[in-house]
Amino acid sequence: MSNHPPKITATHVNVWYGAKKAIDDVSIDIDQDSVTALIGPSGCGKSTFLRTLNRMNDTVANARVQGDIRLDGEDIYSPDMDVVQLRARVGMVFQKPNPFPKSIYENVAYGPRIHGLASSRSELEGIVQTSLKRAGLWEEVKDRLSDSGTALSGGQQQRLCIARAIAVDPEVILMDEPCSALDPIATAKIEELIHALKGRYAIAIVTHNMQQAARVSQRTAFFHLGQLVEYGATTEIFTNPREERTRDYITGRYG
């Protein structure tokens, strides 16, 4: 357990899609300097919950979020909160790699550019280089930065997306099943990367691969039917779950 105050505190969060309730009274803290895994069967609401943390649910027409979510004590659903700044502080990596159909350089430079994070060309180039290095992609692409991002392999594309998220210098990174579209080797690289990034950013990762959750996370939350069934240290959850449903899921009875 960390002795910092939690980075994100979510209390009594409910989400509706139209009349259907997708998240039912979930409370979780996301800690600084650690990886939190959200697991559970398909349709259990883990991705929905992740998307409430940077307000990506705002883009879904009939989604409604209720409850209290705070980033460093600041209410992110308050009317004063600028979503644009929020999303720069809470970065996101998506299920399917989604690079912009632009060059590798432009993909990474886009965020710093719209937020005005670099005052000169060389500073911007520095940011791009650091981000690609941190994402473990620099060596593979340094000679072809002007190639299209969509021409990379799936695993490289996903690391490019991570570099793109890192480039705006976020405090939290949300990963929504980042490896589900990748082969095992690319997956291993991403997991390695998550380890390396852990010290610098608070990371929340949604996965339905339990081995992955066990490998990369320090804390795990188990969701089922929109409810948070159990939340605790990963070792606890996987070796000694308190709840029947958690045990059934982990031992593969359903899911």
Partner: peptide, 10 residues
């Protein structure tokens, strides 16, 4: 200011 983040850009 040189490093003030997220203020509106010029």
């Amino acid at each position: 200011a040189p490093k003030r983040r997220f203020s509106s850009l010029p």
